[in-house]
Amino acid sequence: ENVVSAPMPGKVLRVLVRVGDRVRVGQGLLVLEAMKMENEIPSPRDGVVKRILVKEGEIVDTGQPKIELG
């Protein structure tokens, strides 16, 4: 899985990584606000952040790609 998608609709509060960052499985990639709760979205695997496809403040839909890992 190279693309991390939104598990639920919500607002991107914070992006916790930058392009080029090495990430580990379970590491937080971003914080999504859904139903007035903050949810940290974890990396599904070890890898390197290739692209960030969302911006802080953006509203995302379920299944929308957010971060691409290499």
Score class of each variant (00 low, 15 high):
residue 44 P to D: 06
residue 1 E to A: 13
residue 36 K to L: 12
residue 61 D to M: 14
residue 35 M to P: 04
residue 66 K to V: 15
residue 16 L to G: 00
residue 37 M to P: 03
residue 51 R to I: 07
residue 36 K to A: 13
residue 25 V to G: 07
residue 29 L to R: 00
residue 19 V to Y: 03
residue 57 G to E: 04
residue 43 S to K: 00
residue 56 E to S: 08
residue 3 V to L: 12
residue 27 Q to I: 05
residue 44 P to S: 05
residue 47 G to F: 01
residue 27 Q to K: 04
residue 33 E to F: 14
residue 2 N to H: 14
residue 67 I to K: 01
residue 32 L to T: 02
residue 49 V to F: 00
residue 8 M to T: 09
residue 53 L to E: 03
residue 20 G to D: 04
residue 20 G to F: 06
residue 22 R to L: 12
residue 35 M to S: 11
residue 69 L to H: 01
residue 49 V to H: 00
residue 65 P to L: 09
residue 64 Q to E: 06
residue 15 V to T: 02
residue 30 L to W: 05
residue 3 V to F: 15
residue 41 I to W: 05
residue 17 V to G: 00
residue 18 R to A: 12
residue 1 E to C: 15
residue 38 E to G: 05
residue 28 G to F: 10
residue 44 P to W: 07
residue 49 V to I: 12
residue 7 P to I: 10
residue 7 P to H: 11
residue 1 E to K: 13
residue 68 E to F: 12
residue 20 G to V: 02
residue 35 M to G: 13
residue 16 L to S: 03
residue 23 V to H: 02
residue 65 P to R: 08
residue 5 S to V: 14
residue 70 G to M: 14
residue 29 L to T: 02
residue 37 M to F: 09
residue 66 K to Y: 15
residue 5 S to L: 14
residue 54 V to D: 01
residue 19 V to E: 10
residue 51 R to L: 09
residue 6 A to M: 12
residue 3 V to R: 06
residue 69 L to G: 01
residue 19 V to C: 08
residue 31 V to G: 00
residue 69 L to A: 03
residue 22 R to M: 11
residue 63 G to E: 06
residue 26 G to L: 04
residue 51 R to Y: 09
residue 10 G to T: 05
residue 50 K to W: 11
residue 61 D to S: 14
residue 20 G to Q: 04
residue 43 S to W: 01
residue 15 V to I: 15
residue 41 I to Q: 00
residue 64 Q to H: 09
residue 53 L to P: 02
residue 7 P to Q: 12
residue 48 V to M: 09
residue 15 V to D: 02
residue 2 N to P: 07
residue 30 L to F: 14
residue 18 R to G: 09
residue 57 G to W: 06
residue 37 M to R: 13
residue 57 G to T: 04
residue 70 G to T: 13
residue 37 M to N: 09
residue 57 G to N: 07
residue 32 L to A: 00
residue 20 G to P: 01
residue 58 E to S: 08
residue 38 E to A: 10
residue 12 V to D: 00
residue 67 I to Q: 02
residue 70 G to S: 13
residue 66 K to T: 15
residue 38 E to L: 12
residue 29 L to K: 00
residue 42 P to K: 14
residue 24 R to I: 11
residue 30 L to N: 00
residue 25 V to K: 15
residue 12 V to P: 01
residue 40 E to W: 13
residue 52 I to T: 01
residue 22 R to W: 14
residue 47 G to C: 06
residue 62 T to V: 13
residue 13 L to F: 03
residue 31 V to Y: 03
residue 21 D to V: 06
residue 27 Q to D: 09
residue 8 M to H: 12
residue 44 P to A: 04
residue 8 M to P: 04
residue 37 M to I: 12
residue 26 G to M: 05
residue 48 V to S: 05
residue 24 R to L: 10
residue 37 M to L: 10
residue 20 G to Y: 05
residue 42 P to G: 10
residue 32 L to V: 10
residue 32 L to P: 00
residue 5 S to C: 15
residue 64 Q to V: 08
residue 3 V to M: 14
residue 38 E to H: 11
residue 66 K to P: 07
residue 18 R to K: 14
residue 59 I to E: 11
residue 8 M to L: 09
residue 34 A to T: 13
residue 22 R to C: 13
residue 41 I to Y: 05
residue 21 D to P: 00
residue 61 D to G: 12
residue 36 K to M: 13
residue 53 L to Q: 03
